[in-house]
Each structure stands twice: as structure tokens, then as C-alpha cells.
């Protein structure tokens, strides 16, 4: 039995144009336009309004705990920036500030390693990460950065406290100072490289925000720990860090737009961000005024900036989690982008 190819096709032509092949080349909606203004194709179903399936989240919320991961973000930043500040203090002849920075860095590193391993579940999982170096994976690169940085920071602190092998200690301090900025900022890349809307969309400003926050917290630790005559670099670090952190946060909120930036302004994330900014700005102001003359005021300013930096890290973390929970932060920006592509 012979079946003709065109037997399965329809002769219905939407445009009544014999040059167009049926079905495939007919343009939907063009028929309506040809009939004159005001008589377009009538929608047979109402325009779709976004609702996810039973209001369930589109993304799986990260299983990260705030005290582990936000704590790790803060402590890692504090450790990395403290090593850099300590090396700068050592090179400019401020031994007390240098030693405070080195000891602070190794303690913060210990805390951040505890948080990281607690999140991973078992210490072997960290060691397993060292079997490969994958440059496209922020987690793999981060593991190697920590592995290179950790022993150097430890050696720098040990030689500084004991006074033994000072030359080796200086080399280790310089090594830790060079890898410290990477420790402080790679976490921004780590969270940006997820599908969580606030973190992913903020990938341009987040490293800057984390860098500012880390520098401010390292300066704050210096203000808390070092004698007043050596706190000059710590005060400058606080000022530069707080200004960078504040500017990056504002730039991030502006670029994300009103919808995606909403979790950074409202809810728990918004509250922590506002509190962090207020504490950091107040601390920076006190450190530049009364903190120059009074040891107590400098310590108070340091404590405020340190608390502000903690709030900002936890705020970014909570805002990201809130954006993963609510499906509108995932789908509405996607729909807006699709609309822009179809109507450039």
C-alpha cells in the first residue's frame, strides 16, 4: 500500500498565503494583524501568572548551617586579612601589632577549619579534596588555598610567640600575607558559583564586599589587641575596609534591582545587613576620632567593627537562603530576561 507523504499534512493555512508551507512557516498571530487594528488574536486562556507547583521552592535550599558557613566566611576573612596586616606591621616596625595579627590569624583559621569540617561531616572529606586540583571548582581551589596558607600562618604565629627561627618566621609571614587575600575572598566566589539568586546575581560585587569586610575585621582586631602607638595601620585598614564594604553593598543592592535585592533589605538578612552597616560605620567613625587618643575608645571601635563584619557576613548568608526558599526570586528574573530577549 502506498501512502502519499502529504496525506498526513493539513491544508490549513493561517495566513491564507499559498507561498507559505502549511503548519511550519505560518506565523502565529499574523492572521489577526492582517485583519486590521483592534482585532488581534483573542487569547483563549488567561495570561499565565507565575506560581510554582503548589508554591514549592524551585531550588533546593542549601543544607548549610549559618553558624558553620557564615561563621566560616567571617573567620576565613579575618584570618587572611590579619596575616596581610601582620606582615605590613612587621615590615614597618610594629612588633606588637604584627604578633597580635599573626596569633589572631591562626586562631581564626582554627575556628574556620572547625566550621568547615563540621559542615563537611568528617575530617577525611577535607583530605579527600586534596586528591585533585580542579581550577574550575571554587571548592577545590579553596581547599588548596587553605592548605598552602594554613601551615605558613601557623609557622608565622609560632615563631613570633616563641621568638625562635625569626628569619623562617618572616618568610612564613610573607607567604601567609601573599595567600591571605585569596583566603579572604575565595569564599565570595564559592557562594556566587551556586544557583542561589542573591549570591549568584551578586557575583560582581560579592568579592569586593568580602574583601572590604575582611580588611575591616582585621583592622578591628588590631585596634582591640595592639597598643595605641602601633594602631595606625589598623585604623587605616578599618577605614578602607568599612568604606569598601559599604560601597560594595550599595552597588550590589542597586545592580540586583528591587526584586532580587529584597532579601538584603527585608527579613532577617535585611536586619543583619542594616545592623552590620550601622555598627561598622559607627566603629570606623570612633576609630578615626576618639580611637586615636584613647585605648578604650580604640578597643570599643574595634569591637563594633568586628560585630558589624559578623552581621554583614551572616546577613549575606541569610539573604541568600531566603532567596532560595521563595520561588519568585528564581523565576521572575528569568521571565524578565526572556521578555528582554524576545522584545529587544
Amino acid at each position: 500500500m502506498t501512502v502519499r507523504d502529504d496525506a498526513s499534512q493539513t491544508d490549513v493555512r493561517m495566513d491564507d498565503d499559498p507561498r507559505l508551507r502549511p503548519e511550519r512557516e505560518a506565523v502565529v498571530g499574523s492572521a489577526g494583524r492582517r485583519r486590521g487594528p483592534g482585532r488581534g488574536e483573542r487569547l483563549m486562556v488567561p495570561r499565565a501568572e507565575f506560581r510554582s507547583y503548589y508554591g514549592l521552592p524551585v531550588l533546593n535550599e542549601p543544607t548549610w548551617e549559618a553558624h558553620d558557613i557564615a561563621g566560616y566566611l567571617f573567620l576565613g576573612g579575618l584570618a587572611g586579612a590579619s596575616s596581610t596586616l601582620a606582615a605590613a606591621a612587621e615590615l614597618t616596625g610594629r612588633p606588637h601589632l604584627a604578633r597580635a595579627g599573626k596569633v589572631g590569624a591562626v586562631c581564626a583559621l582554627g575556628g574556620s577549619m572547625y566550621a568547615l569540617i563540621h559542615d563537611l561531616g568528617r575530617p577525611e572529606r577535607f583530605v579527600n579534596m586534596l586528591r585533585v586540583l580542579k581550577v574550575t571548582s571554587p571548592m577545590s581551589v579553596g581547599t588548596w588555598i587553605l592548605t598552602v596558607y594554613g601551615p605558613q600562618a601557623g609557622l608565622a604565629a609560632l615563631t613570633s610567640v616563641t621568638g625562635r627561627f625569626p628569619r623562617l618566621g618572616r618568610i612564613a609571614a610573607l607567604g601567609a600575607a601573599l595567600t591571605g587575600p585569596a583566603v579572604a575572598t575565595y569564599t565570595a566566589v564559592l557562594v556566587s558559583d551556586t544557583a542561589v539568586p542573591v549570591w549568584h546575581d551578586a557575583h560582581r560585587e560579592l568579592p569586593l564586599l568580602f574583601a572590604g569586610s575582611a580588611v575591616a575585621s582585621a583592622g578591628a582586631l588590631g585596634l582591640l589587641a595592639a597598643p595605641l602607638e602601633e594602631t595606625g595601620p589598623a585604623r587605616r585598614a578599618v577605614l578602607v575596609g568599612v568604606v569598601t564594604e559599604y560601597a560594595a553593598a550599595k552597588l550590589m543592592e542597586r545592580r540586583l534591582g528591587p526584586l532580587v535585592a529584597e532579601p538584603l533589605k527585608r527579613g532577617r538578612g535585611g536586619l543583619l545587613m542594616r545592623l552590620g552597616e550601622a555598627l561598622s560605620l559607627t566603629g570606623a567613625l570612633v576609630s578615626q576620632t576618639a580611637g586615636r587618643r584613647s585605648r578604650g575608645a580604640a578597643a570599643l571601635a574595634g569591637a563594633a567593627v568586628l560585630a558589624g563584619s559578623i552581621c554583614v557576613r551572616f546577613g549575606v548568608f541569610q539573604a541568600g537562603m531566603a532567596s532560595a526558599r521563595d520561588p519568585k526570586y528564581t523565576v521572575e528574573p528569568q521571565r524578565a530576561r526572556l521578555g528582554e530577549e524576545s522584545h529587544p
Binding site: E65, H67, G71, L75, L78, S82, P95, H96, L97, R99, A100, G101, K102, V103, G104, C107, A108, G110, G111, S112, Y114, A115, H118, S160, V161, G163, P166, L221, G222, L224, A225, A226, P227, L306, I310
Partner: peptide
Amino acid sequence: SYLPFATAVAVTCLASWLAGRPGRAVPT
């Protein structure tokens, strides 16, 4: 659950303060 984090921050500050005390001799 926040205690380990709070402890880490407290230990960092305390250890740093102890290390940076002006009364303590620094090997130069």
C-alpha cells in the same frame, strides 16, 4: 549551635590581645 563560632571569635580576640600586650617583650 552558635557556641563554637562565638568561642572561636572570643578565643581569637583574647589570644590576639594577649599577644599584642605592650608589656610583653617582643623578640626583634
